[in-house]
Design a protein around this nucleic acid. Structure first.
Lengths: 140, 140
DNA sequence: GTGTTTTGCTTGCGTAATGCAAGTTCTCTT
DNA sequence: AAGAGAACTTGCATTACGCAAGCAAAACAC
């Protein structure tokens, strides 16, 4: 989308936000993944988003490869990259739960519906990492 | 901020995005945490953001408790909630690294500077959870 | 097969957010 | 006290967003 660029920022966060930092985008992705929304009207009625904005968002998300559209069935869906936005959406949801207000749903997995959360872990070992111990380094 | 509400959405993700979903917000938080920016001019020169927008963002972030301001030193800083946005920023950065373009930095921890990543884990055991196995449930 | 509703958008227009550039105040230096 | 830089503020143009209405095509009703 035009105009919402971060021209001076040579970083992956800025690049990601150019694609997914728009209003409604993460909510559309969440709806597709968890509410099972596939049709234009599904998103519209579920989110209460204006139809022209929804039209633009879906078009944009398809353009950048986050969502897919099947003309035969008229169904929108998440691509692989769209499904990987789940981590971002969950992290933001958890933050909102803790610092703004608890929502009506929780993330679970497996037959026992055990709660799931996001975590920071060592990339090799998978061991949990203290948030305060993290720093950045220039990639070699 | 006014006007950017998601009135029909009774969910923590929408609540979080109302506070942190604006342009520049996550980049400001990242700069404060990793670049060590504390002064108005630090953020401005680092991000290339318009000064009036930066002024509003900082004011807003202080208002909602994500950032702090010390009038004695003129230094902006992250509150506890602001520091917890790190997970969101890291998840978005990782997504951008993988699906848009690799950036110049990486997240590390500890004396050995071991790479860190975000993960989805069981809330009780901390065991890794397959992203595709996750569903939502209405909280009781 | 023809009228009606539903779906899936597009168009017009007003409002809000964002950005650039210039101006202002305040502090700090010399 | 005069100049410089930091930290904003103000004015104005551009872009994004939202509401409401319109419109074409498909599904349904009879």
């Amino acid at each position: 989308m035009l105009g919402r660029l971060y021209p001076g920022q040579d970083c992956a966060l800025a690049r990601a936000l150019e694609l997914i930092g728009e209003r409604w985008t993460l909510l559309i992705v969440r709806d597709a993944r968890f509410r099972g929304s596939t049709r234009f009207g599904d998103f519209q009625s579920s989110l209460g988003i204006a139809s022209n904005i929804l039209s633009r968002r879906l078009e944009h998300l398809i353009e950048v490869g986050v969502m897919t559209f099947d003309p035969a069935t008229g169904a929108y869906g998440l691509s692989e990259s769209g499904q990987e936005l789940l981590t971002v959406a969950m992290a933001a949801t958890e933050w909102g739960e803790k610092w703004v207000a608890p929502g009506p749903i929780e993330f679970v997995h497996g037959p026992a519906s055990a709660p799931v959360r996001t975590a920071l872990v060592d990339a090799q070992t998978g061991a949990p990492v203290d948030r305060k111990a993290i720093s950045v380094r220039r990639r070699r």
